[in-house]
Simulated assay, not measured.
Amino acid sequence: MALGIAERLVAEETLKMTICERCNTQEDTLVVRVFSKFFVASIMFFAFKKRVHIECISCKRMEKSIDSFPKRTQDRIEAVVGDAKHPWYLYSGYVIFFIIILISLVSK
């Protein structure tokens, strides 16, 4: 039985008209990757969180928090994270768990 926490890339987007304030070289160098974190219990998946990873492809800066960016850039990163959705099958654990509870209540 597999048990543990896993991640899957659900979105990757280059921020348009945004400059990395560390290298200030050119626009469109910040790449935002959004990962879906989920708990795995055998064949059941339980999505519970998104993780963000921001990288400047010019200076190789890597950040896991949006707090180190200006407010305008933070808003654009939050938009990418908001648009990224967990895959539908990562909710299967909740559905299976609900059906088991429902069947046990009805059978009594």
Rank of each mutant, 00 (worst) to 15 (best):
R72E: 09
S104C: 01
V40L: 11
C23H: 05
V31R: 02
V81R: 07
S42I: 14
E7A: 13
K37N: 09
K49S: 06
V81S: 00
C20K: 05
T29A: 10
G82W: 03
F97K: 07
E12S: 10
G4K: 08
F48A: 13
E78N: 08
H86M: 06
H53G: 10
I96Y: 12
K49A: 13
V95T: 06
D83V: 10
S42P: 12
E7T: 13
L105H: 00
K85S: 04
V10S: 12
V52Q: 02
V106M: 04
I43T: 13
Q26D: 08
R76T: 04
A47K: 07
R51D: 14
R72I: 12
H86W: 03
P70C: 13
I100V: 11
S58N: 12
F35D: 10
F39L: 05
V95Y: 04
R76I: 14
G93T: 03
R8I: 15
D83G: 12
C20R: 02
L15W: 03
E78S: 07
R51C: 10
V32M: 02
E55L: 05
F98M: 12
T18E: 01
A41I: 01
G93I: 03
S68Q: 12
P87Y: 08
K71Y: 11
D83Q: 14
T18K: 01
I54M: 00
R72S: 11
Y89T: 00
K50M: 07
A2G: 02
L105V: 13
K16M: 12
I54Y: 02
V40E: 09
G82Q: 03
T29L: 04
G4I: 15
A11L: 10
D83H: 13
W88Q: 12
L15N: 01
M1H: 12
R8P: 00
R61N: 10
A84L: 07
E55Q: 03
L9T: 03
G82D: 07
V40Y: 01
Y91N: 07
L90I: 14
E27A: 14
I77M: 11
A79R: 14
I43L: 13
P70W: 10
L3S: 11
T29I: 09
K37P: 11
F39D: 05
A11W: 01
L30K: 06
S42E: 12
A84W: 14
R33V: 09
I19W: 06
F39W: 03
C59W: 02
M62Y: 14
R33H: 02
I54E: 00
S107C: 10
R76M: 11
S107H: 06
A41P: 05
S107P: 10
I19S: 13
T25H: 03
M62D: 14
F48R: 11
Y91S: 04
E13I: 14
A47W: 08
M44Y: 06
E21H: 11
K60A: 09
R61V: 09
I19F: 04
A2S: 13
Y94C: 04
C23D: 05
V40T: 08
A2N: 14
V34S: 05
I101G: 01
W88R: 12
F39G: 01
L9H: 00
F48C: 11
L15Q: 07
L90K: 00
I96P: 08
S68F: 10
V10C: 08
L90R: 01
I66Q: 12
